[in-house]
Design a protein around this nucleic acid. Structure first.
Lengths: 331, 331
DNA sequence: CTGTTAGCGCATTCAC
DNA sequence: GTGAATGCGCTAACAG
């Protein structure tokens, strides 16, 4: 009933095909070294027996296991799943398997995960790492490592530059006649938050807009909703939020107060993770997480193949996506 | 500059500690077999050299790699990330690493992923598998396998029973005076959809409500929004949607038509993946994906340890979460 | 308790 | 082209 689970090794195949074990091995890894006839015979026998090469043994022998690790701070943050998915698909194209780690925003946990993975992977990707530069460098010294949204010199990294999109956002608000806006900030330790805050500041200054900063600390729906009180006391007529979740909370807080969007107040998010699913649909800054995931993975694969070690810094720019929280806009 | 990366094996540690290689091995895996003194010496030497056991070699020798695989149809569907996260954390507790696979709703891809993973894992978890029963059984014959939201007899499975919550939803609507409701259906191949549809049907019947079915086919915001036309022509006064995304779309469609929720029309979602982030906040059926992920993983670990093979069917029930799309309700 | 030995399954020199 | 032999790093009997 249970089917034969007798260990199938290269040996049984060799016997069945009437060749040496090494030929079986070659048939799988370097068929061009064998006569077509031999290859055919081996493959046929293997197929019939249901043989499949033991990945572990192969890894021990060659030193390459065909695995990579991807660690993110929070899978449940909608920013990451598309990134993970893209990385996954790219890995698939190169026959790599990916270990996924969730650090839970905790540097210690992230360190632990790296340790656990490092023995079984050829390289790793750290997305929005919470590790210190030192730890990152230390790990990078062990294995090829690429960073996403973390700018550490000397370590290959892919960065999503939200600055460009945010500048467009400010210009958009200026065009609509807003003269006083507020930036609802995210985590102070976030590289992206810093970028965004600076971009708002600078372009507002250049365009002659007044700008206030309201902290939301943790980027979430609730934080956004609670920030509305502070936002309204500034007297601003529009807000740019650290991310879409925060913006969504702001929308809810505004609705609670019967403040109409966009006619009475304009709102702009960041990362475009909600699509058009808010009401009104959210004007936001585009998200490049898919490209980032894909780029990071292919960069890693490239690094793995050609041991090139030049300093790589891959930047993806963003742009404004105008929907209905800043202007009545057809869809 | 680059630090010494000379391969550190058990051998160097053995020499440094002045013991046999097997003692080094034991110090790491079965310290209780050694004198405390020896253990200390070995560990000290290992620490000093920066030695860390080679997982691959260990796996080849023991047959256990300490890895499991988790395959989901779509990481980007908000239902899965919390499940993945929970599984991850549970795996961590048992020192397992998890390979994550995204089948992209494609059985072929799912099969391919299983094949790629199976050589490096001790067991796998298939969440909402799109594979045929046969394929699932075939894979289960190779390796311990547990299913989530898929009911195949003989294969250990954990099921989220949305029936209980849906029955509460129907009762809730009946209490509010609704006499004619509609169920906005999801994918026909979905086990969960079937459950939900039946539960709506049966309890509506029992309570004397009229019920119509409107298909949304693919569960998404857009599908929900488009379904509103069909929903309104039925003359119903409330809708239960296959999932929260669909419900959210319905909310938007209703808003487009200036139909007030909940005073003119009631809406209930399923899975509670949006939290209170819709406006009005969505009444929905609770989600047990976190427990499901956790249970599946610990079940798998248990299976791995004690080769018990009894038929396990773990069911998680759900309940209604009342928010503001059915009744004006304080938060 | 600890050292010695023999594989785990495969890739890879070498000869033939 | 193909076969025989060696070793990847570690664990698991088996002795002592």
């Amino acid at each position: 009933m249970r089917g034969q689970k007798e260990k199938l090794t290269i040996k049984q195949v060799a016997e069945a095909a009437g060749v040496a074990r090494s030929s079986v091995s070659r048939a799988f890894t370097r068929p061009e070294m064998l006569s077509p006839e031999t290859v055919r015979r081996v493959l046929h026998a293997a197929e019939k027996l249901g043989y499949v090469p033991n990945q572990t043994a192969r890894a021990l022998s060659t030193g390459r296991h065909g695995n990579v690790a991807l660690i993110v701070p929070d899978i449940a943050n909608p920013f990451f799943p598309p990134l993970i998915r893209a990385a996954q698909m790219e890995a698939d194209r190169s026959d790599f398997c990916v270990f996924l780690g969730n650090s839970d925003e905790d540097p210690k946990q992230e360190d632990k995960l790296v340790g656990r993975f490092v023995g079984q992977v050829e390289g790793l990707i750290l997305a929005s790492s919470r590790l210190s530069d030192e730890r990152i460098r230390a790990h990078a010294a062990q294995r090829p490592l690429v960073l996403i949204n973390r700018d550490v010199e000397g370590i290959p990294r892919v960065l999503i530059d939200s600055g460009s999109g945010v500048r467009e956002a400010v210009a958009h608000l200026a065009e609509l006649g807003h003269q006083h806006i507020v930036y609802v900030a995210g985590p102070v330790t976030s590289w992206s938050n810093k970028q965004r805050r600076l971009a708002v500041r600078k372009s507002a200054e250049r365009l002659g807009l007044k700008v206030d900063i309201v902290p939301a600390i943790v980027p979430s729906y609730d934080a956004g909703r609670e920030a509305v009180t502070a936002i309204m006391t500034t007297g601003a007529t529009a807000a740019i939020a650290f991310d879409d979740l925060t913006a969504q909370g702001i929308l809810a807080g505004l609705a609670d107060r019967k403040i109409n969007v966009p006619s009475q107040f304009g709102v702009i998010g960041c990362d475009d993770v909600l699509g058009a699913a808010t009401y009104p649909s959210l004007t936001t800054v585009s998200n490049r997480s898919v490209e980032a995931g894909k780029a990071a993975l292919s960069l890693l694969v490239e690094l793995l193949q050609s041991q090139s070690a030049r300093d790589i810094r891959y930047v993806l720019d963003t742009h404004l996506v105008v929907r209905n929280t800043t202007i009545v806009h057809k869809e």
